[in-house]
Amino acid sequence: MSQALSRTERIAALMNGDPAALARAISDVERQRPAARSTLEAIQPHLGRARVIGVTGVPGAGKSTLISRYVTELRRAGRRVGVVAVDPSSPISGGAVLGDRIRMAEHATDPGVFVRSLASRGHAGGLSPTATHVVDLMDAAGWDRIIVETVGAGQGEVDIADAADVRIVVSAPGLGDDVQALKAGILEIADVLVVNKADLAGADQTAAQLASMLALRAEHARDVSICKTTATTGQGVAELAVIVETRLAAGDSRRGCAAQRARRMVATAAGNLLTRELRELEAPWLQEICERLQRGQSDLESAARAVLRSAKLVDE
């Protein structure tokens, strides 16, 4: 792709599946360049062909190896596979080591697999709004199965619920209390629960434990599939792929509601923006509100409401 390409030509190249155009469009989105906005607008009418599979799980469960094997299955079925791997940024330096490439070695020369690592850049290890744009770009570029992987801690797993059609939560035996930790959030979003490292003693026990946890949940309990895999050898991964495809074929998608998703994203983005602006703003009225709070003349809720009443934070 030469530099001389116009913006329109770049968008055309992107939609034609040119990987270099896709890579660059993703960078534009990440760097919030002006070009990103027009690209995202232009691709809107062409979205929705791809199916998105979210994968998260307990650290040490072998998630990356499992994804690598799963990609192999999807490739065997003739799918073009995009992978978005999100790793946390260092809160101190802003830098990051994006290491999930490590486990994808077997697809390293396959042009039918496009992997992009994203640093969470302050989004607590979860999905940044950028990640959903990246998914859209891959969708527009003709990648028909897109896997979104997030680290198994923090807020990120819940965000996956917004971005994915099917959500896989990976666990493994022998991780001690971590299986218990599944209860505290990510179990709720799972469509498929995978017990990886099924060759280890205790795999059946872990599966049974998960099943009984599910049974305690009143609704949706029957909807969740449990599946055992051994990612190191690939055992059970074909079955996992079938389960996911069956769910997709049955129209399983909570991503479908684009309006709701947009609403949630706008709310988050506006909130973030507001927080940033308020932290830096030097204004007498804001100072006054804070002083009243300090002196105990107002409570936090009233102070916040006062801020929203007074704030005209954005000019345009």
Binding site: G99, I102, R103, E106, T233
Partner: peptide, 11 residues
Amino acid sequence: EMGFGEPLVQV
């Protein structure tokens, strides 16, 4: 038969 030996590399 037994799987490729990919090390777990951590920085």
